[in-house]
Design a protein around this nucleic acid. Structure first.
Lengths: 215, 215
DNA sequence: TATAAAAGTGAGTACTCACTCATGATTAAT
DNA sequence: ATTAATCATGAGTGAGTACTCACTTTTATA
């Protein structure tokens, strides 16, 4: 008890706020927003219940702060400036990066997805700031390739969906449904396989010039 | 009020239980399990709050009953007995059927996925009775094709994941993230595209006999 | 060190929750 | 019509909830 107090005093002046947010995240993840109590959050943070309300007007404000633009932002503006390289390299860079960014913010994303259904503001932010941005980057890539005739003439949105879906499946599988019981996928193997299947699936190997693809 | 009472009396003896379950489902979907109150469920069902507890010992029992084997079962044993037909036809049959079954039980599945995180019993049942079964059927198909040399020599689990993921993406997109804002996909188009991409992606077009694929 | 401001506390408050139970209504059987 | 059994009710109950506030402790300033 005393030791805890000393410990928490150390991080005192800079960010008690962050300390509470971290605790809220932990508890929300474990019990969900509605299932969590401010009492438990306080305990997890090592502060008195009243202290929470010095920093956040309401319990819901805690959740909204977790989903605030500042934090969420970092997910989006990550991948830019890959050009003049092979599709395999570009896609691998994109997917690897996405997966990395996702893994870093895994818990937050998990929480936001879970609560999005009940809090329109969160849903809005999540879709606008993460999903659509991320999709836009990839969609631009798809559109280019289709226009160049390298990929089949399909709706870029469907192409994006196919790739994101394949990748997303393995991520979600791991995250939500508990992997180990079924199988534990190796990240790089999965990425390579996904890219291979995808590129083979969408590349044009039409009449005339089929030599280009062999190399 | 009186009319409601008369109405509910009609369905009285056979299944007041079902009436309450339906209401619980509706409310759980809208507010989540923790966010729902028995009072609201009672109101939705058109019965007194106490009546709920004549049929279900606790609020949680309502949730568990919704996820009970009987109901959940119907999702699994649907697709069997397609053989001797082309991959395209088989896969289209599978995917179309899965999508149909999913759409019929959409709300239930949505609810189960949402609550699985907080209720191990539900998660267990969901994974065992739905996911693994459905996966098994598809995985058998993949294993066969790989063994026959028609598909690339990849882990059948990854192949299954790739296909399910592509398909799942569009379904989840629609369900969880609100489609219309972004785009509304036509089911058949999506299925056809997914199959095309998948088959092109995983089929063997090795040296030697490339005539087979042309047709 | 004295003093004001800021930060932290936790018992208290008003309220909501899941669940109970004494009572009333409906049905079935004679 | 009488009785007994079942079904339905909703005010009531205690446990717990988010949030407040009178108070204490810590920090900053002189």
């Amino acid at each position: 008890m005393v030791a805890d107090q000393v410990d928490s005093r150390k991080t005192r002046s800079n960010n008690r706020q962050q300390q509470i947010l971290d605790a809220a995240m932990t508890v929300f993840l474990k019990k969900g927003f509605s299932g969590s109590t401010t009492k438990e959050i306080a305990k997890e943070a090592g502060v008195a219940e009243g202290t929470i309300f010095r920093y956040f007007k309401t319990k819901k404000d805690l959740l909204l702060e977790l989903a605030s633009p500042g934090i969420v932002q970092s997910l989006a503006d990550t991948m830019e400036g890959t050009s003049g390289q092979s599709d395999e390299v570009i896609l691998k860079a994109i997917l690897t990066n996405r997966l990395e960014v996702f893994n870093q913010n895994r818990e937050l994303v998990q929480l936001l997805i879970a609560e999005a259904r009940f809090h329109p503001e969160i849903k809005e932010q999540f879709v606008e700031r993460i999903v659509l941005r991320a999709a836009a980057v990839m969609q631009r890539f798809m559109t280019e390739r289709v226009a160049a005739g390298d990929f089949k003439d399909m709706d870029p949105k469907i192409l994006t969906g196919a790739l994101v879906g394949m990748m997303g499946f393995f991520v979600l599988w791991k995250e939500f449904l508990l992997a180990d019981k079924y199988v534990d996928f190796n990240s790089e193997t999965v990425i390579d396989s996904v890219i291979e299947v995808f590129l083979n699936g969408v590349r044009n190997k039409e009449k005339g010039e089929d030599d280009e693809n062999k190399a």
